[in-house]
Simulated scan of single mutants.
Amino acid sequence: MAVMDGTLLLLDVDGVLNPVRRSSPRFRRFECVAEGEWFRLLLDPRHGAKLTALRRETGATLTWATTWGERANTEIGPRIGLPPLPVIPIDGDPPRPPGVNLKTWHVAEYVRGRPFVWFDDDLGPADLEFLHGHPGVGEFLVVAVDPRDGLGDAHLDAARRWLTARRRQAAR
């Protein structure tokens, strides 16, 4: 395993691991109850192995960045073959500029200068501007995922390329 500098691989659930439509026969349907609400999930069991391989190749730490919070470890991770992962707490509604996603503020507070790749389907220009201007945020790559299709090999490859390029630069 490559040893990196605390690099994080941030995972959203809805729209990323749980697309809004069944984009491939590999996705399986699940139902769960969370906080008294029924949720329909479409999950690809292969995602766990692919994300674990990316973690193993790059040394980055897989971390949940989702409003599912700890429920991602009980409802999502086991269904795709991921062990319990660290969770970025997304609680409260801190003041933030217009157009900035609630998760963005919490991610910026959590990373503490560590580089990260963030797989998300709901970030826009205001989020990127916020991240670039936040004093606790260093290098990062946001990999935009189409919520209709969810996470695919091209997204994982983009993360792998960025992480590998960072590792090569650090070795110089």
Results as ranks from 00 to 15, higher is better:
96 R>D: 01
65 A>H: 09
155 H>Y: 12
74 T>F: 05
47 H>G: 00
47 H>S: 03
78 P>K: 07
43 L>V: 09
151 L>A: 10
44 D>C: 14
146 D>A: 09
137 V>C: 08
106 H>Y: 01
123 L>T: 15
134 H>C: 09
65 A>Q: 11
107 V>A: 01
52 T>G: 00
33 V>A: 08
41 L>Y: 13
66 T>C: 08
140 F>K: 09
32 C>Q: 06
73 N>Q: 02
31 E>D: 01
81 G>M: 04
47 H>W: 13
73 N>F: 09
59 G>N: 13
44 D>T: 15
160 R>M: 08
138 G>A: 11
78 P>V: 06
145 V>C: 05
122 D>W: 02
158 A>K: 11
157 D>E: 15
104 T>Q: 08
137 V>H: 05
71 R>K: 03
108 A>E: 02
41 L>G: 09
32 C>D: 15
122 D>V: 00
59 G>P: 13
101 N>P: 01
132 H>F: 06
152 G>D: 14
94 P>Q: 15
104 T>F: 07
83 P>Y: 02
45 P>N: 11
126 A>W: 01
70 E>T: 13
117 V>N: 03
104 T>L: 05
35 E>Q: 14
94 P>K: 13
79 R>P: 10
82 L>T: 00
69 G>F: 00
109 E>V: 04
86 P>S: 11
42 L>F: 15
157 D>P: 01
125 P>H: 06
76 I>N: 05
96 R>E: 01
121 D>K: 07
55 R>G: 15
38 W>D: 10
84 P>N: 03
158 A>N: 10
86 P>A: 06
52 T>I: 03
150 G>E: 12
56 R>M: 09
158 A>H: 11
38 W>G: 06
107 V>W: 03
150 G>H: 11
134 H>P: 08
39 F>L: 15
134 H>R: 06
47 H>N: 12
49 A>T: 12
46 R>L: 07
40 R>Q: 05
77 G>I: 04
117 V>L: 04
102 L>E: 10
141 L>A: 02
75 E>L: 14
95 P>T: 03
56 R>C: 00
76 I>T: 06
32 C>Y: 08
33 V>F: 11
153 D>V: 11
86 P>F: 12
40 R>P: 00
111 V>Q: 04
37 E>F: 12
117 V>E: 08
32 C>L: 14
112 R>I: 00
116 F>H: 13
153 D>Q: 13
68 W>F: 13
154 A>S: 15
125 P>Q: 06
46 R>C: 00
53 A>L: 13
